[in-house]
Design a protein around this nucleic acid. Structure first.
Lengths: 297, 297
DNA sequence: CACACTTACGATATTCGTAAGGATT
DNA sequence: AATCCTTACGAATATCGTAAGTGTG
């Protein structure tokens, strides 16, 4: 027979009170049960832990050395149990998420705020990387999930759409265009065009779609930071087109945004995760928060 | 319901094999029992540890974080159990013992050798201190037991006699006395007497007993080291009397020892321990070794 | 269709509590 | 004589193993 948890609790109670009756009361058990628990524990360990005349209970030297061991063992036990319970009840935990810049800088903070208000104990690590790296990090398991454009169908990746991101026109507030209700690409492209540099998914998408519709893209200025693009437009250097997600950012920089059509250029944005590796409880909660936040729009 | 040891072992086995059937076999239980164990563990922790289709068993992220925790918990558990068993079976442990110099330097090493041969894993700490300090250290609990002269009866100290220590005469080998079969105190005291300095229990005992028998002690040379006394005698500076325990030591220093009577001065030597504080298993074994070694003489 | 986990149920083993016993102060 | 631990025994509980069930590949 080997040690059991109950026996350890019994030992600690008796070692503390030096009285079987009080100890058994504290553990909500009968006194004979306590007696038996101590006896079987002693048998399991191969020697006496207490010397007990009917009048005095006392730790043996071996019992004395066992005392701190038992206490540590039970403390670790209880802590582990509690840590797991907290993890499952989302009182603690952590989740890593990757997001492409346009999302990370605009929609994500609001989602994280809602998540944090609901699950204050969960640590969230955000990796703000370009669209391709989001997919790469998810595939490699470096993050549990990512927010990016819908990738081409994959056996290992799963995509949960959150919404469509449509390109809008960005013009200077002083420009006559700012007064228009909406613009066509032909009208927009008549002006100097400012946009992101080549590796950007936004830039590549633009070129591809515009080419397909017979609107080759001629770029007057380019930058690798959207902020710079926004400032350039605000200063009247030219016009641009950005995903609607970035609209508020552009507005804040002093530019004006308006609907852009003919053709409408849009793409699905959503959460990417591995198909077979399941999400942690924390990640599931974050995903649910994503879906809740975006179903409202 | 809370975690049990068996559930933890079940979890580790399944986490390792990722197969309920193999895991249950390894733990000598039926496969449904394993299924139940995992289920109740998951219930205890409040969430799933494995995702299991009938074809694939896989750790959830929570199960993954639980894995090292569970392993550590069980390792600590088993180590503690084993450490206690070893302590009780005297494969390990430690014992502190105090001994007065005459005993520590002469009889003790032989006892410790026998003890060590039998109980190689037990660490023994010896405090070689004067007789009074032996008693003090036992009373204060700084050592589990001590070897000293029999103290006056005490409510808190217990004395186990090992044997009597009788004073023998020490003379130079060149002295005519060395040829005698035995000596009386009167004959011995006719020569220059060399002995230990005052705080020594041996010195005090000698003075007390000799006075009681009308032989006031006149000391020619004194030292606080028995080795010095022995050398002095060997060089022919005078004679001495030492406890029989020190006989071999004196002989080794080049002096001759012979029986000394009229009066015979002797005192009980034994093991002192506290009456109520019990001995550790290791100390009991050491005490038993003491008794065995001395019952042979 | 076969394999692997789950559910069901009866048997076994363990644990527990009440009552009586024994020892010490 | 009172207190406190131990022993004894019947009952409740938990666990386990066999057998049948269910879903996946």
């Amino acid at each position: 027979m080997r040690m059991s948890i109950k026996q350890l609790r019994a030992f600690l109670a008796v070692a503390h009170t030096l009285n079987f009756a009080q100890a058994s009361e504290k553990l909500n058990m009968s006194q004979p049960a306590m007696s038996l628990a101590i006896n079987t524990l002693e048998e399991a360990l191969g020697g006496q832990l207490f010397t007990r005349t009917t009048r005095r209970v006392q730790l043996t030297p071996e019992g004395d050395t066992f005392f701190p061991m038992a206490r540590q063992l039970l403390a670790d036990w209880d802590n582990t149990e509690e840590a797991m319970r907290q993890r499952f009840t989302l009182q603690t935990g952590k989740v890593s998420v990757a997001a492409m810049p346009s999302f990370a800088a605009n929609a994500l903070p609001r989602v994280l705020k809602a998540f944090r208000e609901r699950y204050g104990g969960i640590n969230v690590t955000v990796h703000d990387v370009i669209n391709e790296q989001v997919i790469e990090m998810v595939a490699e398991g470096r993050v549990e999930m990512g927010v990016a454009f819908e990738p081409q169908a994959s056996a290992s990746l799963h995509f949960t759409p959150l919404g469509t991101d449509r390109f809008v026109a960005v013009v200077s507030r002083e420009s006559p265009l700012a007064q228009r209700g909406q613009l066509s690409w032909r009208e927009l492209l008549a002006h100097d065009f400012i946009t992101l540099q080549r590796p950007s998914a936004v830039r590549l998408l633009l070129e591809e779609r515009l080419n397909a519709h017979g609107h080759p893209l001629k770029v007057a200025f380019e930058s690798h930071q959207l902020v710079t693009v926004g400032h350039m437009v605000a200063c009247g250097l030219g016009v641009s087109a950005v995903p609607a997600l970035c609209e508020s950012q552009m507005t804040a920089l002093g530019a004006a945004c308006l609907p852009l059509g003919n053709p409408v250029i849009e793409r699905q944005i959503g959460v990417i995760r591995t198909r077979h590796g399941q999400l942690s409880a924390a990640a599931s909660a974050l995903l649910a928060t994503f879906r809740a936040q975006f179903s409202l729009r």
